[in-house]
Amino acid sequence: MNSKSKRFIKEFFRYLIIIFAAFWMVLPFFWMVSASLMTPQEITSIPPKWIPEKPQWHNYIDVLERVPIGKYYLNSLLVAGTATLGVILTSSLAGYAFAKLNFPGKKPVFQFILVTMMFPVFIFLIPNFFLMKTFGMLTNHLSLIVPFLVSGYGIFLLRQFIMSIPDELLDSARIDGASEFKIYMSIILPNIKPGLSALAITTFIGQWNNFLWPMIISSFSPNLMTVPVGIQRLSLAFASAETQHLVLAGLVYQVVPMLIVFVYFQKNFIKGFVVSGFGNV
């Protein structure tokens, strides 16, 4: 076999595998959108339907009529946005300290932060709710934001990014008399933009999709309802079949803004991630 045909076979298998995998990646999304345009009967028909006979666009209008989704968007945006800013700030500061500054107790404190990530989230539910009530935050957006302002994963991730910045860069700034905060602002932050955007996107998505905590909070303060909690209102406690098409349309309402945000930022994000020094751990 000559090298050209060998190369062709290699490329053939490369794309075969990629396309096979891509098909399975897309299938659930395809079905979600398709099913959200079906009647309840079509969703459960045998054999399964791939596309609705007649797209039921009014499913989307029905959702809007039943729940004030615009208000939920605003709440979600405010909560996820603020929490993301907070996480970026606290993670980059701590990440810098752990990556580049020496101080007594650094190692155990960092290990402690790794350990915090290992606790099941349920144990925080009741005590943190108690704290929110004590701090008087229960009736405002702070109750949805404050418990998420610091992320162990964020500190861990940004520390990895900051470690790949050469020490010489920092030292030369220090010789010029720059304070550590100045270095943080003018050297660290600009050099870890891909890391920041990676963390921003994952945090924002995580907060946007957060369910249990906002559900508990907003059952006390209905004005704090976020998108996932609001979508949940469409599904009835028992007769779930009645509204499953609306719930599917609701899920599309929840997922689509994230997809748009992601597709819009992905060039920066993926490319930035790729060219960053993240690989050189």
Binding site: L89, A94, I113, T116, N128
Partner: peptide, 19 residues
């Protein structure tokens, strides 16, 4: 630098000591 280090991790540590 150590002082700066403590300063930079303090927001996270205060958070963890409460939540």
């Amino acid at each position: 630098r150590a002082r700066a280090g403590y300063g930079f991790i303090s927001p996270s540590l205060i958070f963890y000591s409460i939540f």
